[in-house]
């Protein structure tokens, strides 16, 4: 009755999120006095076995199949379902990334089993498999609210919220075992058919500084001064949904529950009220500075720093002050 971790990788390159799932699985395995094993799909992932062993895998089950050469939600989900039938684990854990949640949902549908996604805590009362009670806290509303729930199922299918469990090493035996699966050819219908790779560079989710604009910016043109400030600081511009809804900026710039999660050293939120759905996308920022005419705005009261005033006057003044000091230096 092992705890099985579904390993996420892209054509052989391991998703770091998997190591968070390994950490969560080790904790559950300790409660149940059992071991942790890992499941890799596709021959390209064979090479990650040693990393999985370093993070606690006693066994690494390797599935090889032509249909698993690239990612495909149905082929991956079917392979996981067959592995679960073969190995009969007590629980299956993946990280709650886009792919992690998708593969686990495909597997759950095929197994006719419950799946609890984005778990933050997993408690198993009293081991002794049959009577054990599984109580889980999971993220709802993109992390703005939690839910406590029970999970009753012959095999517990779970994903853990990304960035909640911390990856850590803990040597496991790491024995490698091949695991045969049979995948029907039609599962190729959802395997990635083509790719367009993006040029590397600073993105909204990785930028050390984000200058965000909300409805208070007033227009697409109003973003020029935010662009300028971001430019002098080597940061990028983000925005609220009010802005994308008005067509002032592209959705790729949107911060929040249905946009991008940011985690910069500093987030300068200009003319943004701080609705909960925006806040969840910004709350991982190390420091937040709000610029707003309204001292009672949620963004202002939750921020670390604030400037009260019209962003159209404040933002250019900051840019000018930076230029002035640089000219002096």
């Amino acid at each position: 009755m092992t705890i099985l971790v579904v390993v996420e990788h892209d054509r052989g390159s391991l998703a770091a999120a998997t190591l968070e799932a390994m950490a969560a699985a080790r904790r559950v395995a300790a409660d149940l006095a059992t071991d942790v094993s890992a499941l890799t799909l596709g021959a390209a992932a064979d090479a990650v076995a040693s990393v999985l062993a370093e993070h606690g895998a006693d066994t690494v089950h390797q599935v090889h199949h032509d249909l698993l050469a690239d990612y495909g939600p149905e082929a991956w989900g079917e392979a996981v379902a067959q592995a679960v039938r073969a190995l009969q684990p007590a629980a299956v854990v993946a990280c709650g990334t886009d792919r992690g949640n998708e593969v686990m949902a495909q597997a759950a549908a095929r197994l006719g089993a419950a799946l609890v996604v984005n778990c933050n805590t997993i408690e198993v009362s009293a081991a002794g498999d049959a009577t054990a009670q599984w109580t889980i806290t999971r993220s709802r509303w993109g992390g703005s609210l939690l839910e406590r729930c029970t999970l009753v199922a012959p095999v517990k299918l779970l994903t853990v919220t990304h960035h909640v469990f911390e990856a850590s090493t803990s040597p496991g035996a790491g024995s490698v075992l091949p695991l045969p699966v049979e995948l029907e050819a039609w599962l190729a219908r959802t395997v990635v058919a083509e790719r367009v790779e993006r040029a590397a560079g600073v993105t909204l989710s990785t930028a050390p500084l984000v200058v965000g604009g909300g409805r208070g910016v007033g227009s697409a043109e109003g973003f020029a001064s935010l662009e300028e400030l971001a430019g002098v600081l080597g940061g990028v511009v983000g925005c609220s949904r009010a802005v994308t809804n008005n067509g002032w900026r592209n959705h790729t710039d949107q911060v929040g529950q249905t946009g991008t999660r940011i985690a910069p050293d500093l987030y300068m939120a200009c003319g943004i009220s701080g609705a909960i759905q925006h806040w969840v996308g910004a709350m991982a920022s190390k420091q937040i500075l709000a610029i707003n005419t309204d001292p009672e705005a949620n963004m202002v009261t939750k921020a670390d720093y604030a400037v009260i005033g019209d962003l159209h006057a404040v933002v250019p003044a900051i840019t000018n002050e930076i230029r002035r000091r640089r000219a002096q230096a």
């Binding site: 939690l146 839910e147 406590r148 604030a306 400037v307 009260i308 005033g309 019209d310 250019p316 003044a317």
Partner: peptide, 28 residues
């Protein structure tokens, strides 16, 4: 199904004491 809610729980809110750096462009 096998997933049954017990209760909703508020997320812990970090107490924030905002430092107001100033008012208007003078805060630059």
């Amino acid at each position: 199904g096998g997933q049954q809610m017990i209760t909703l729980v508020q997320t812990a809110e970090k107490a924030s004491t905002t430092v107001v750096l100033g008012h208007g462009p003078d805060a630059a």
